[in-house]
Design a protein around this nucleic acid. Sequence first.
DNA 1: CTCACTTATGGAAGCAGTTCCAAGGAAAAC
DNA 2: GTTTTCCTTGGAACTGCTTCCATAAGTGAG
Lengths: 346, 346
Amino acid sequence: MEAVPRKTTIREVARAASVGIGTISRVLNSSSQVSRETRARVLEAIRRLGFRPNAQARRILKRRAEMVCFLLSNRDFLHPFHARILQGVESYASGLKQHVLFAALHYSPRTPPDGIDLPPVLQEHGLIDGLILAGTIYPNLLRRIESIHMPFVAFSNNVVGIGDEEQFDQVGFDDFNGTLHATRHVIGKGHRHIVFAADVSYPWLRRRFEGYRQAMRENKLKHVLITSRNPQSFVDFGQKSAGRILSRQPRATAAVAGNDEIAYGLWRSLRRQGVKVPDDISLVGFDDREEAVLMDPPLSTVRVDKEEIGETCMKMLLERLHHPRMTFSQRILPTEFVIRGTVRQV
Amino acid sequence: MEAVPRKTTIREVARAASVGIGTISRVLNSSSQVSRETRARVLEAIRRLGFRPNAQARRILKRRAEMVCFLLSNRDFLHPFHARILQGVESYASGLKQHVLFAALHYSPRTPPDGIDLPPVLQEHGLIDGLILAGTIYPNLLRRIESIHMPFVAFSNNVVGIGDEEQFDQVGFDDFNGTLHATRHVIGKGHRHIVFAADVSYPWLRRRFEGYRQAMRENKLKHVLITSRNPQSFVDFGQKSAGRILSRQPRATAAVAGNDEIAYGLWRSLRRQGVKVPDDISLVGFDDREEAVLMDPPLSTVRVDKEEIGETCMKMLLERLHHPRMTFSQRILPTEFVIRGTVRQV
DNA sequence: CTCACTTATGGAAGCAGTTCCAAGGAAAAC
DNA sequence: GTTTTCCTTGGAACTGCTTCCATAAGTGAG
């Protein structure tokens, strides 16, 4: 490996400006105790020598890396949903001169905590100040992260099997009220036979189901949960559910899907069987993924602001770093029902 | 801001293991000059004290940040396409204990180079060793990056208005041969009237067009370029192009789209007009984005391995860092035509 | 038994900054 | 005119590591 060329240091700048090294440091950190002329002379020397302070050296002394890690915790690829969260994190962070490291984590829900291999960034010390956890989070991962005593904030909608008694900073959005409002909207359009399609063993889909059920109960309507066996994916789950919806009597006039992928699968399979959305059956989704707009007609769905999630995660993490002893908090972001073309008046 | 608790240092470990600090360093860097017993004693002390070496301190001495920045250069959100590239970068990097910083860049093609605002990470010195540039790259950005003398590799398919004489490390994929093979496939299925739909003012779409034209010429077929005015997006471009394809005489039996989004727009608009894919018209795309599989039937398209792009970028960047004077190189990755359901035999 | 050559180890110096304390000088107070 | 105070300023000491040099101990040859 060839040598990296020596860079200008603070001492050379000091010599060039005929001042002491302390003065340079003071100018760099814009602490006020420097006279006008001296500051001007120093800045001129900095400019002339093309000096850029070494970030590492400062970090040692400051004991702050000014860097956080966005850790994507499952084997999924960087899905658009999480990509948008990452964007929110980065955009908020860069405004505050904070840096964002991206790392991926490979683990299975059943690995014992000690067995989880952490990415290189977490094996060093001082590289990052804190962690933003995204992706599906199982208890063993939480244990593992806690064991390294690194401040973190979790995007908690995809947390699985972790009780309410668990204490950590988390940001999520409102599954329950999301489907509650979506279902009310559908009911408001005159529908009476509305089914809900999702695998409610996922906590977040369970919460969405409860929102749907609440809306049905309010209107004294019967709730119906549609599931399907051994789906390959959520889209496949939707496809397989379509038949079950059609075979029920009385025939449902609307379906609330647990997420957009299920809605997509449903839509696709229904269309193949000659059932038109929304003419024959209305449909709503959840998440507002890119697919929602690509569908034809575009899907009415529950929007969650992914960038806001990222932003809020970053904000909370910074608060945590400034106040390590602050009690843990949990922020639930609101959702918004977006009306597009898949719900019709009956 | 509360103080961060003092962490164990190398000197404490040295005391605990009754050895010198040099020995600790030697163990950490696994240089061989340490006896079995001493190494064991040191490792034991490290474990007992929960010592994690401070990354910053090492970096100062090593003059290497062991970190690169993935810089997304346009105003687009982190699109799945680039998200996958980032994944490739990260996955290759983490295997080599390198870290990946994510940063976004906001600039317009017409800002003068000096006017481009670089993200915080590029304003410090020593934070990163090099840069991976993705997104749409205009000459002014290239100028700006060169001005800070930071080694970089560009994902060059989306480079606009930069001549061949330009020298920098780049990774791209084979636009020309991609459509060449795709078009040959379509011709092989018996099609004779095949149109190409794209805005060829984009260099990469122009190259794809040339690939298509080459295949047509080989078979003594007439090439037809379909474009449309003021599209809002590529999908919109496709939608607007559909009418133009249908109104031509003789009617085309197949269309090659410049990318999957155009293909999607085409498909959607054709379907609305009662024209079925592939029964009435065959269709192929380019890129193999997520939409391709979601279409019904799924789109036959040209696949590019996004993770491989990321991996190759990272690999080239590391080579560049090890050999700063090496001549610039350009790597073109092959593409693969994936047959799904949108091309039929005539 | 001595000498040359390895191999292992301790720790000072150094990296590029920040911090803090002492000191110089000017202005203000006495 | 002297003392006090305030504002600047210089630079030693420090951060947590790596590197290198000197030394110690061990090994084999002569």
